[in-house]
Structures are given as C-alpha cells and as structure tokens.
Design a protein around this nucleic acid. Structure first.
Lengths: 360, 360
DNA sequence: TGGGGGCTTGACAACGTTATCACAGCATGA
DNA sequence: TCATGCTGTGATAACGTTGTCAAGCCCCCA
C-alpha cells in the first residue's frame, strides 16, 4: 500500500532519490541509500510493476498458449518455458486453450495477453484461423516463438523435435528383435506430429522390405478410446507381432484392448509408443518408447523468445530441431541391449541402479 | 500501439467520450459510439490493462502458487482454478515453486506476484516459513484461498478433500474381499495428507480387529523410489495380502518391486492407492483407487477467492471439504461389485461401455 | 585562480487510462 | 416562467513510477 512517495517522505529525500536508491541505478550516496532502505523496509514497500511498465519498461511477462496443461507432455513444455523465464526474471502466464471443448478461449486468452502488455508469446496452440491471429500478433509487434507447433509458412522461431528419425530407429529395433508384422496406430492425417511418425515407420519398414500397407496402419485419433478401437479392429484382421502407437494415450487404449483379449505384452505381442506416461511409466507394460526432450524444448523456445524480447537477436526466423531418444524397456521384448544406456532386459534386471526414477 | 487518444482523434470526439464508448459505460449517443468503434477497429486499438489498473481498478489477475505443475494432480488443480477464473474474466499466473529443487522460487514468485498487483492468490504451496509469508500477505491485504494445503491455524479460506473417510472405505472393501494382512505405505509424519490416509487405514483395520502395527506400516516418502524401497523392505518381512499406497508414485514403485519379485497383481497380492495415474490409468495393474475431485477443488478454491476479491463475501474463513470417491478396478482383486457404478471384475468385463475414458 | 568533469540531488513531465466535475441542451412538471 | 432532472460531452487530475534535465557540490588539473 505504501508507495515511493511515502518512502521518500519517511527517508527525508526526494522521490527521485528514493527511486534511484530502491532500484540501485544511477548515483546515490551511501547515506541516502541506507535511509531509503530503512524506510522501505519499515513501510513494507513493494514497487508497483504496473507503473514501471507504464513508463515503457517491458512487463517481463510472457504468455504460453498451450492446448492442455493437464497433459504431462504439455505440462513439461510449460515447466521448461518457466525455467527459461525464471532465469531471466520473467513471469509466465500459462493459457490452457482446450480447443476441443471451448472454441472461445484462444480468442479471449490472446486478447487478455495483449491487453496485459505481455512482452511475447510462446505458442504451442495451433490457431483455428492462423492468418487472422498471426496478422494480429505481427501488427502488435509481439515476438512469438513456436514450440512443437510446426505449421509451415509463418515467420516465427520454432523449436521442435525430430520424432521421425527416432521412430524409424525404434521400428528398426523391433525388426532386429525379429518382429515382422508391425502395425502403426495414429491420428487422422493431415497431422504434423502424426505424419512425422508415420514416415519414420514407413521408412524403416520399406527398407526392411516388410509390408506396411493399409492393413497394418490405422489412423483414427490420439485418444485412449481411439487406441482401444483401433487395436480391436486391428486384431480382428489377425495378430501382428508388434504395435507402434504414435502417442501414449493410444498405447494405453491398446494395452487395455490387449488385456481384454488376454494377450500379454511383450510375450504375445510387442507394444511401443512415442512419449512417456508420466507417473504411469513404471506400470505394465513397462513401455519402450521414443522420448522427446519436452522440458528442454520448452526451455529453448522460452530462450529464443526472450532473446527477441531483449533485442539480443533480431534476424531471420530460427528453427531448432532436437533429437528424440529411443528408450528401450520391456514392452518390445528386448533381451538386452547396451545401446541406449537404460539397458533393461527382463523384469529381474530392472533392480536398483538400472532405474532412474523421475520424481526428483 | 494505438491508444485511446488516437482513437478519439480519428473519431473526432474527446478522449472521455472515446473511453466511455469503448467501455460501454456511462452516457454515449449512438453516433459517437459508432464513430469510436469504427476508429478503434481501424487502428486495431487494444486497451492497456496496465493503465486501467493504475486507476485503482483490479488487475483481474490471480496467482496460483503450487508445488509442481508437471504432476497431474496439481495440473488438475490448476485447470480448475483456471476454469473459475476464466468464468469471471480473471487471468491465472501459475507459479510452480518446486521447493525440493529450488528453495528460492517461493520468495521470488511471491515478490513478483505482489509487484504485479495481482488481486489474490490460490495457495497449494506450503510455505517454508508460514508466519513470515502469511504476515506479508495479510499486510498487503491480499485475499488468499488455500487448496489441499491444510495447515492449521491460519485465517484463510480452504478447500480440501476428505481422503480419510474414503481411505477407510477402501480398506473396508479390501477386508470384505478377504484380505487380512494389509500394509500401508506412505510419507514420513507429520504430513497433513499422509496423516489423513493413515488414520483412515487404522480406523478400518482396528474396527475389523486386524493387525496394523509397525510391521505393516512404512512411512518413508512420496516418491517412486520410496515406494520401491518400502515394498522391498515390506516383502522381506513376509508377504501381505494387500498393499495400500498413499499416493500413485508410491504405488508405481511398489508395482515395480512386485514385478521384480514376480508377484502378480492382484493374483498374488492386491495393490491400491490414493489418486489416479493420469495417462497411465489404463495400464496394469489396473488400479483400484481413492479419487479426489482435483479439478473441482481447484475450481471451488478459485471461486472462494474471487468472491473475496469482488467483495461478495468478506466474513469468517470458510472451509469446504469435498468427498473422495472409491473407484474399484482390477488391482484389488474384486470379483464384481455394483457399488461404485464403475464396476469392473476381471479383464474381460472391462469391454466397451464400462470404461469412461478421460481424454477429453 | 579558473575551469572541467564527476558525483549527488531534486523538480517535473510523461506513460494510458478513467473518475470527477462542470456545463450545455432538452424535456418535464409545477 | 422557472426549477428539476436526465442525457450527452469534454477538460482535467490522478494512479505510481521513471527518464530527463538542471543545478549544486567537490576535487583535480592547468
């Protein structure tokens, strides 16, 4: 409640001197500084960031527009953005747009962010009307860094992950283990993320001369229920050796369907996917996965954005592509492999040091 | 970039009239309103929320101070807070304090929130120095609503969940199924959350005349690795019929340890816990749980806070206690029960409509 | 002794908005 | 006819801070 005038009065100096002393900028004598500090402490003075920003200072707030903060993949992105922000004294406003259940939020969030004079936006959310919103952002001169969202043809920095290469490696690993009929389950096309994984799958299968046509590829959606339905459809056409799910929720649905049919993973059928299960990672099937460095992606995107905000960089749009990693666990039926470091054969080899728990 | 003066000039009216027209408050003739709206659209005018708040208006921003946004339990709380905020035109600044890895964030976040003139705080985070921080908040007249954080003796609204009753019911369910030696695995005491669940366990065990002493109760921590270690310790003392883990990460560690010892859930041993696994919910063991209404808790806390901010309520601190629900799935070894609606016996009964997928 | 330059301080305008006030026009009713 | 009240409009101060400028002081060097 106390403002800088109160502090100045109590310290017996001018407002200007109080302001300088509080900020530690400009010339201030030690005595004045001491008096001001004492007064500020006594009055429990808290500077008003609004008034500061009114004088043209950046607000040091950035927005993070994301589909769904409840999804651990996105939550990790958010945590990464926060890491970058925190390191530079920025605050993040996380906006969970949930476009599938509330079309209006993207609009109202963006409006709020602009009105709040945020300094920039990290964007995972894919706008329903890209031209309109990107125009809006460019008109307002708001720096934007995109993450994951790899829509083509817009002049913004981008951080994404190459899941195609890792998907290909993962399939190759399955092939090395002896799997031949390998199915792929993903979302409808077109899909930036889904397309990437499909191509990785196709590359590996083609190179190995294995069938990878319509019979083995179902593309219906990202949700658990989609995975469940696709798995049942797939199994009615005959049992594959392995299933590659493009996302963990798909894999969860598949696991559920397999359990219903009393098929064991990996004994009867292998099951692998892209992305981890958060807290469920240690449950069964103990899943072999392609892991994206989500937190790092968020962090890098935050860093790119802040560089633009501070004017450290102002050149052409940049694109950072991070590699994904294959993490071999039990669900692919591996015996033992030294390749990935996280070597894990069967259940009994998991003991102790082989495990790297994630909960701090 | 354009401000209200530009709009006024272009519309050919005074700043006051432009302001009134933009806000739709006070008297404005239809002609003026039309002219101003046209000018605002042409200039892509965006009101400056900072300047508005400078004139004593609330910022309509609230902070949510939480341990870890990556944990789905907390992420759901956050989503609930956002639901409440969004409904009233408020913005949420989520601050993930991560006290176990960065002691300084609680301080720096709180400072940032205060400087940003937020209107209130929803608090899950438990302060390292409660008196200091609560004093600070009360001095600054910041309304606070706590959620989950059930520290005693502070005059703030509180929304929490009664996991004690549900834990008791869950144990009773295990007992009805014939389990006798039931172990409990949780965090060190004192712990608000852990204590609640322990008491529920003890009540049920005592009422049934079953042993529930030191041999069956281990209290070492919330983490996966703690669950893993506790499970191994427990099993070296002999095999219990069932294990009650106080949290999902503990349960994940237990599941891992059981797998290592080739013990099947629920055939060899039952395993139940408090809280769900997010995306891992459909994996094995398909866990019987106590479920808290996280999102609703967050929402209610947000509502209580906003009521205080808007002055709708200003009386004594309120406490809302929501019930937790027992969700019976497969890991407890149930045969079939009509009680919970989500009845699920063995694998084959899971099919189709019995499942309520959570992804969207 | 004079002047240049660094240190220290304070007065004041400005940021964009809204609340307050004053005033003018018009209709109503006594 | 005049007082009253409603409608519409505009000038102005204020919110809390900081950037700019001017001025005074002291020290050092020419």
């Amino acid at each position: 409640m106390a403002n800088i005038k109160d502090v100045a009065r109590l310290a017996g100096v001018s407002v200007s001197s109080a302001s300088r002393a509080v900020r530690g900028e400009g010339y201030t004598s030690p005595e004045v500084r001491a008096k001001v500090e004492r007064a500020a402490a006594e009055l429990h003075y808290v500077p008003n960031a609004l008034a500061r920003s009114m004088r043209g200072r950046p607000t040091r707030m950035i927005g993070f527009l994301v589909y769904d903060i409840v999804n651990p993949f996105f939550a990790n992105l958010a945590a990464g953005v926060e890491d970058a922000a925190q390191a530079q004294g920025f605050t993040v406003v996380i906006c969970s747009s949930q476009p599938w259940q509330d079309k209006g939020r993207e609009q109202s969030y963006l409006q709020m962010l602009l009105q709040s004079q945020i300094d920039g936006i990290v964007l995972q959310h894919v706008f329903s009307a890209p031209e309109y919103y990107y125009d809006l952002l460019q008109r307002q001169r708001i720096p934007v860094a995109r993450v994951v969202n790899a829509q083509q043809g817009y002049p913004f920095d981008l951080v994404r992950c190459d899941t195609q290469t890792a998907s290909c490696e993962l399939i190759q690993h399955l092939i090395r283990l002896g799997h031949r009929r390998i199915a792929a389950l993903g979302p409808q096309l077109p899909s930036y993320l889904g397309g990437d994984r499909l191509i990785g799958y196709q590359k590996a299968m083609r190179a190995a001369g294995l069938e990878h046509g319509e019979e083995l590829v179902l593309l219906e959606g990202w949700r658990t229920r989609d995975g469940y339905n696709m798995a049942h459809k797939l199994l009615e056409r005959g049992r594959p050796d392995a299933i590659f799910a493009f996302g963990p929720r798909i894999a969860a649905g598949v696991a559920c369907a397999l359990r219903e049919r009393s098929l064991r993973v990996p004994e009867d059928i292998a099951l692998v996917c892209v992305d981890d299960f958060g807290m469920g990672s240690e449950l069964d099937p103990f899943m072999t996965i392609v892991r994206q460095p989500e937190r790092e992606m968020g962090q890098r995107a935050g860093e790119l954005l802040i560089e633009r905000i501070l004017g450290v960089y102002s050149g052409e749009p940049r694109e950072i592509v991070l590699p994904a990693q294959v993490i071999i666990r039990r669900s692919c039926g591996a015996q033992r492999t030294a390749k990935e470091g996280t070597a894990a054969g069967n259940a009994s080899s998991l003991r102790g040091a082989n495990h790297s728990w994630e909960d701090d």
